[in-house]
Simulated scan of single mutants.
Amino acid sequence: MSITPMWRVDRDGSMFTDKKSAEEHDRMLELAANLTTLLEDHFTMDEQLAEDIGLLLSRNKDILSKAFKGKPDLVLEIGKPSDEKDPDSEAA
């Protein structure tokens, strides 16, 4: 019998086989939570919508960072099938 170490992210209960992926996922969720709070503080919107927007922005932070640095067309690529990643693809 082999033993596989697993790391569980407390925020959403997802499981990962390596610590780096678990920490990266946790940081993404923390950023999403903070973005959700920002949206709720500045706009009148449904809590679920604010959370969905926060997750969308957080999952695409690298693309958004490049867009803010002078490549605004990259924003239009978010959500297209070729760029879409399953954030739980490493979850067991």
Score class of each variant (00 low, 15 high):
80 K>A: 06
45 M>S: 02
60 N>F: 02
2 S>M: 11
5 P>D: 12
3 I>C: 04
38 L>F: 13
37 T>I: 06
27 R>E: 07
78 I>D: 01
58 S>Y: 01
18 D>S: 04
28 M>K: 03
89 S>N: 13
53 I>K: 00
22 A>G: 07
24 E>Q: 15
56 L>V: 06
68 F>H: 12
48 Q>V: 13
32 A>L: 02
50 A>I: 01
46 D>A: 05
29 L>M: 08
16 F>N: 02
29 L>N: 00
54 G>A: 01
60 N>S: 12
23 E>A: 09
86 D>E: 13
25 H>W: 06
38 L>M: 12
20 K>C: 04
12 D>S: 08
20 K>I: 10
28 M>H: 00
57 L>T: 01
54 G>I: 00
8 R>T: 11
62 D>S: 14
52 D>V: 04
58 S>D: 00
83 D>M: 14
68 F>R: 15
22 A>D: 01
27 R>N: 11
6 M>D: 13
85 K>S: 10
74 L>G: 04
15 M>L: 15
32 A>W: 00
49 L>M: 14
83 D>E: 15
84 E>V: 14
30 E>N: 08
50 A>C: 10
36 T>V: 01
53 I>M: 05
89 S>A: 14
5 P>F: 07
69 K>N: 15
1 M>V: 08
20 K>G: 03
42 H>C: 09
